[in-house]
């Protein structure tokens, strides 16, 4: 989708939500759906569209973990760090992933392929430890399986 089309779509949503109470979060979530992340221009657009200071939009964007201020990788790789998974050794897996991908948790690989995220409980505790790549869920993951799994993408 072209940039203009993206902004038009966001504008329509803003127009819909403008007269609702508490529109900021839904608008920001929609913007992230459309653009993939919330850079300065998009946040400015929202600030002007909803007539709130940019400071407020940015304050909300940086408070919640799910809002990305930077462009994300092609694939989002989330390793669950919830208690059940942690107790089953998720930290070791995370270390291994950081090593294999040569990034720190939260960053995107140099080739733009993966963004490594340490995520909150995904709710699949029965399959701990759990890893998600985009919408694919991998359960009972072992450190050795990691290189194989990554190769699929």
């Amino acid at each position: 989708m072209s940039d203009k089309a993206k902004y038009d779509e966001l504008q329509s949503f803003i127009d819909e939500m403008k007269n609702e109470k508490g529109p900021l979060m839904p608008v920001m979530q929609k913007a992230q759906d459309i653009f993939g992340y919330l850079p300065f221009d998009v946040q400015k657009f929202i600030a002007l569209g909803l007539d709130v200071p940019l400071t407020e939009v940015y304050g909300v964007a940086t408070f919640y973990s799910q809002f990305n201020l930077e462009k994300q990788g092609e694939h989002s790789l989330s390793l669950c760090l919830g208690t059940a998974c942690y107790v089953k050794g998720a930290q070791t897996l995370l270390d291994r992933l950081e090593q294999e991908l040569k990034v720190k948790t939260g960053d995107t690989t140099k080739d733009g392929k993966f963004t490594l995220i340490g995520t909150r409980c995904l709710g699949c505790c029965g399959l701990a430890p759990v890893m998600m790549i985009d919408d694919d869920v991998y359960g009972q993951v072992k450190a050795d399986e990691i290189p194989e799994i990554l190769k699929k993408y």
Partner: peptide, 20 residues
């Protein structure tokens, strides 16, 4: 009613400053 500074980030990392 101007609002050029505000809280950003969260928790221990919170800092009050202009956006971006």
């Amino acid at each position: 009613d101007i609002g050029v500074i505000g809280p950003t980030e969260r928790g221990f990392r919170t800092i009050v400053e202009p956006a971006f």
